[in-house]
Protein backbone atom coordinates (compact mmCIF):
# COMPACT_ATOMS: atom_id res chain seq x y z
CA UNK A 1 0.00 0.00 0.00
CA UNK A 2 2.87 2.32 0.80
CA UNK A 3 4.45 1.65 -2.59
CA UNK A 4 1.08 2.16 -4.24
CA UNK A 5 0.60 5.55 -2.58
CA UNK A 6 4.14 6.62 -3.30
CA UNK A 7 3.63 5.96 -7.02
CA UNK A 8 0.53 8.16 -6.95
CA UNK A 9 2.43 10.84 -5.04
CA UNK A 10 5.34 10.66 -7.47
CA UNK A 11 3.12 11.01 -10.52
CA UNK A 12 1.18 13.90 -9.02
CA UNK A 13 4.43 15.64 -8.14
CA UNK A 14 5.71 15.17 -11.67
CA UNK A 15 2.47 16.44 -13.17
CA UNK A 16 2.23 19.50 -10.95
CA UNK A 17 5.87 20.37 -11.58
CA UNK A 18 4.94 20.82 -15.22
CA UNK A 19 2.03 23.04 -14.28
CA UNK A 20 1.91 24.49 -17.78
CA UNK A 21 0.70 21.20 -19.23
CA UNK A 22 -2.18 21.03 -16.78
CA UNK A 23 -3.15 24.60 -17.48
CA UNK A 24 -3.04 24.03 -21.24
CA UNK A 25 -5.38 21.11 -20.93
CA UNK A 26 -7.90 23.09 -18.88
CA UNK A 27 -7.64 25.94 -21.37
CA UNK A 28 -8.35 23.55 -24.23
CA UNK A 29 -11.39 22.25 -22.36
CA UNK A 30 -12.74 25.75 -21.80
CA UNK A 31 -11.99 26.86 -25.34
CA UNK A 32 -14.35 24.23 -26.69
CA UNK A 33 -17.01 25.98 -24.62
CA UNK A 34 -16.02 29.23 -26.33
CA UNK A 35 -15.89 28.02 -29.91
CA UNK A 36 -19.19 26.15 -29.82
CA UNK A 37 -21.36 29.25 -29.23
CA UNK A 38 -19.32 31.13 -31.81
CA UNK A 39 -19.80 28.31 -34.32
CA UNK A 40 -23.52 27.77 -33.85
CA UNK A 41 -24.69 31.19 -32.71
CA UNK A 42 -25.53 32.73 -29.34
CA UNK A 43 -29.10 31.37 -29.04
CA UNK A 44 -29.36 30.73 -25.30
CA UNK A 45 -32.06 28.07 -25.43
CA UNK A 46 -30.26 26.12 -28.10
CA UNK A 47 -27.01 26.32 -26.16
CA UNK A 48 -28.67 25.13 -22.98
CA UNK A 49 -30.17 22.15 -24.75
CA UNK A 50 -26.90 20.99 -26.29
CA UNK A 51 -24.73 21.90 -23.29
CA UNK A 52 -24.55 18.38 -21.75
CA UNK A 53 -23.35 16.96 -25.03
CA UNK A 54 -20.85 19.74 -25.57
CA UNK A 55 -19.36 19.33 -22.11
CA UNK A 56 -18.97 15.59 -22.61
CA UNK A 57 -17.37 16.14 -26.01
CA UNK A 58 -15.00 18.66 -24.46
CA UNK A 59 -14.11 16.19 -21.71
CA UNK A 60 -13.65 13.45 -24.30
CA UNK A 61 -11.31 15.45 -26.50
CA UNK A 62 -9.32 16.83 -23.58
CA UNK A 63 -8.85 13.40 -22.05
CA UNK A 64 -7.72 12.02 -25.43
CA UNK A 65 -5.24 14.86 -25.68
CA UNK A 66 -3.81 14.00 -22.28
CA UNK A 67 -3.64 10.29 -23.03
CA UNK A 68 -0.17 10.28 -24.49
CA UNK A 69 1.56 11.48 -21.36
CA UNK A 70 0.16 8.69 -19.21
CA UNK A 71 3.01 6.24 -19.96
CA UNK A 72 5.13 7.86 -22.65
CA UNK A 73 7.65 9.67 -20.47
CA UNK A 74 8.15 6.81 -18.03
CA UNK A 75 8.54 4.43 -20.93
CA UNK A 76 11.12 6.58 -22.70
CA UNK A 77 13.34 7.21 -19.67
CA UNK A 78 13.12 3.59 -18.51
CA UNK A 79 11.46 4.20 -15.15
CA UNK A 80 8.56 2.00 -16.24
CA UNK A 81 10.99 -0.87 -16.68
CA UNK A 82 12.40 -0.22 -13.23
CA UNK A 83 8.92 -0.23 -11.74
CA UNK A 84 8.45 -3.82 -12.84
CA UNK A 85 10.84 -4.80 -10.07
CA UNK A 86 8.87 -2.99 -7.40
CA UNK A 87 7.48 -4.72 -4.32
CA UNK A 88 3.93 -4.51 -5.65
CA UNK A 89 2.63 -6.06 -8.85
CA UNK A 90 2.96 -4.19 -12.10
CA UNK A 91 -0.83 -4.15 -12.49
CA UNK A 92 -1.12 -2.28 -9.20
CA UNK A 93 1.45 0.23 -10.41
CA UNK A 94 -0.53 0.80 -13.59
CA UNK A 95 -3.64 1.25 -11.46
CA UNK A 96 -1.80 3.79 -9.32
CA UNK A 97 -0.72 5.67 -12.42
CA UNK A 98 -4.32 5.62 -13.59
CA UNK A 99 -5.49 7.22 -10.36
CA UNK A 100 -2.75 9.83 -10.53
CA UNK A 101 -3.64 10.56 -14.13
CA UNK A 102 -7.29 11.05 -13.22
CA UNK A 103 -6.37 13.38 -10.37
CA UNK A 104 -4.01 15.50 -12.47
CA UNK A 105 -5.69 15.52 -15.89
CA UNK A 106 -9.40 14.94 -15.36
CA UNK A 107 -10.14 16.49 -11.99
CA UNK A 108 -8.96 19.95 -13.14
CA UNK A 109 -11.40 19.69 -16.02
CA UNK A 110 -14.28 18.84 -13.73
CA UNK A 111 -13.34 21.76 -11.50
CA UNK A 112 -13.42 24.00 -14.58
CA UNK A 113 -16.87 22.74 -15.62
CA UNK A 114 -18.80 25.63 -13.96
CA UNK A 115 -16.98 28.02 -16.31
CA UNK A 116 -18.26 26.05 -19.26
CA UNK A 117 -21.72 25.86 -17.73
CA UNK A 118 -21.79 29.65 -17.50
CA UNK A 119 -20.92 30.07 -21.15
CA UNK A 120 -23.40 27.44 -22.29
CA UNK A 121 -26.29 28.83 -20.24
CA UNK A 122 -26.78 25.81 -17.98
CA UNK A 123 -28.82 26.09 -14.81
CA UNK A 124 -27.48 25.00 -11.45
CA UNK A 125 -29.37 21.73 -11.29
CA UNK A 126 -28.07 20.60 -14.67
CA UNK A 127 -24.59 21.69 -13.68
CA UNK A 128 -24.74 19.45 -10.63
CA UNK A 129 -25.93 16.54 -12.73
CA UNK A 130 -23.14 17.23 -15.21
CA UNK A 131 -20.50 17.16 -12.51
CA UNK A 132 -21.88 13.93 -11.07
CA UNK A 133 -22.02 12.37 -14.51
CA UNK A 134 -18.44 13.42 -15.25
CA UNK A 135 -17.24 12.15 -11.87
CA UNK A 136 -18.87 8.78 -12.47
CA UNK A 137 -18.01 8.43 -16.15
CA UNK A 138 -14.49 9.78 -16.59
CA UNK A 139 -12.75 6.89 -14.76
CA UNK A 140 -14.03 4.58 -17.50
CA UNK A 141 -12.86 7.04 -20.11
CA UNK A 142 -9.27 7.11 -18.92
CA UNK A 143 -9.29 3.36 -18.28
CA UNK A 144 -9.94 2.70 -21.94
CA UNK A 145 -7.48 5.46 -22.69
CA UNK A 146 -4.84 3.69 -20.62
CA UNK A 147 -5.18 0.58 -22.79
CA UNK A 148 -4.75 2.65 -25.93
CA UNK A 149 -1.81 4.55 -24.48
CA UNK A 150 -0.14 1.34 -23.32
CA UNK A 151 -0.52 -0.37 -26.68
CA UNK A 152 0.88 2.53 -28.66
CA UNK A 153 3.59 3.55 -26.21
CA UNK A 154 6.40 2.24 -28.41
CA UNK A 155 5.11 4.03 -31.52
CA UNK A 156 6.68 7.36 -32.32
CA UNK A 157 3.51 8.42 -34.06
CA UNK A 158 1.32 6.91 -31.35
CA UNK A 159 -0.25 10.23 -30.46
CA UNK A 160 -2.99 10.03 -33.06
CA UNK A 161 -3.65 6.33 -33.32
CA UNK A 162 -4.53 5.79 -29.65
CA UNK A 163 -7.55 8.17 -29.77
CA UNK A 164 -8.75 6.54 -32.98
CA UNK A 165 -8.67 3.14 -31.28
CA UNK A 166 -10.24 4.36 -28.07
CA UNK A 167 -13.09 6.49 -29.38
CA UNK A 168 -15.29 3.63 -30.62
CA UNK A 169 -14.79 1.77 -27.35
CA UNK A 170 -15.77 4.82 -25.33
CA UNK A 171 -18.99 5.64 -27.12
CA UNK A 172 -21.22 3.85 -24.55
CA UNK A 173 -19.69 6.16 -21.93
CA UNK A 174 -20.66 9.16 -24.02
CA UNK A 175 -24.19 7.85 -24.59
CA UNK A 176 -24.91 7.09 -20.94
CA UNK A 177 -22.92 10.09 -19.71
CA UNK A 178 -25.06 12.50 -21.69
CA UNK A 179 -28.30 10.66 -20.82
CA UNK A 180 -27.39 10.94 -17.15
CA UNK A 181 -27.51 14.73 -17.47
CA UNK A 182 -30.55 15.29 -19.67
CA UNK A 183 -33.81 15.93 -17.90
CA UNK A 184 -37.22 15.12 -19.22
CA UNK A 185 -36.20 12.03 -21.15
CA UNK A 186 -38.76 10.01 -19.25
CA UNK A 187 -39.04 8.94 -15.66
CA UNK A 188 -36.14 6.86 -14.43
CA UNK A 189 -34.10 7.13 -17.65
CA UNK A 190 -31.67 9.58 -16.18
CA UNK A 191 -30.94 7.69 -12.98
CA UNK A 192 -30.80 4.41 -14.90
CA UNK A 193 -28.24 5.93 -17.25
CA UNK A 194 -26.19 7.09 -14.28
CA UNK A 195 -26.27 3.61 -12.76
CA UNK A 196 -25.22 1.98 -16.03
CA UNK A 197 -22.47 4.57 -16.37
CA UNK A 198 -21.30 3.67 -12.89
CA UNK A 199 -21.36 -0.03 -13.75
CA UNK A 200 -19.31 0.56 -16.90
CA UNK A 201 -16.86 2.64 -14.89
CA UNK A 202 -16.43 0.00 -12.18
CA UNK A 203 -15.95 -2.82 -14.68
CA UNK A 204 -13.48 -0.98 -16.87
CA UNK A 205 -11.49 0.36 -13.93
CA UNK A 206 -11.22 -3.17 -12.54
CA UNK A 207 -10.39 -4.71 -15.92
CA UNK A 208 -8.17 -2.39 -17.85
CA UNK A 209 -5.14 -2.12 -15.53
CA UNK A 210 -4.51 -5.79 -16.36
CA UNK A 211 -4.84 -5.17 -20.08
CA UNK A 212 -2.63 -2.07 -19.92
CA UNK A 213 -0.03 -3.79 -17.78
CA UNK A 214 0.05 -6.73 -20.17
CA UNK A 215 0.49 -4.39 -23.14
CA UNK A 216 3.36 -2.57 -21.40
CA UNK A 217 5.03 -5.85 -20.48
CA UNK A 218 4.74 -7.17 -24.03
CA UNK A 219 6.17 -3.93 -25.39
CA UNK A 220 9.17 -4.20 -23.11
CA UNK A 221 9.87 -7.84 -24.01
Amino acid sequence: MKAFLSIIRRDIKLATSSFGDMLTLVLFFIMIGVIVPIAIGPDKNLLASIAPGVIWIAAFLSSLLALDKMFRQDFDDGSLLAMRHASISFEAIVFAKLIAHWLTSILPLIIATPMLALMLNMNTQILIYTIISLLVGTPALISFGAVGAAITVSLRRGGLIAPVLILPLSLPILIFGVSAIKLGTGAGTQSAALLILGAISLITVAFTPFASALALKLTQE
Binding site: V147, I151, R157, L165, A211, A215, T219
Partner: peptide, 19 residues
Protein backbone atom coordinates in the same frame (compact mmCIF):
# COMPACT_ATOMS: atom_id res chain seq x y z
CA UNK B 1 1.92 1.53 -37.82
CA UNK B 2 4.04 -1.24 -36.30
CA UNK B 3 7.26 -2.33 -37.98
CA UNK B 4 7.67 -5.45 -35.88
CA UNK B 5 4.62 -7.52 -36.77
CA UNK B 6 5.26 -10.17 -34.12
CA UNK B 7 5.11 -7.65 -31.31
CA UNK B 8 2.20 -5.89 -33.01
CA UNK B 9 0.19 -9.13 -32.99
CA UNK B 10 0.31 -9.44 -29.21
CA UNK B 11 -0.57 -5.80 -28.61
CA UNK B 12 -3.36 -5.81 -31.17
CA UNK B 13 -4.70 -9.01 -29.63
CA UNK B 14 -5.24 -7.02 -26.42
CA UNK B 15 -7.21 -4.27 -28.12
CA UNK B 16 -9.22 -6.85 -30.07
CA UNK B 17 -10.19 -8.59 -26.84
CA UNK B 18 -11.04 -5.32 -25.12
CA UNK B 19 -13.14 -4.48 -28.18
Amino acid sequence: SFDDQLRAAKLIAIIVLVG
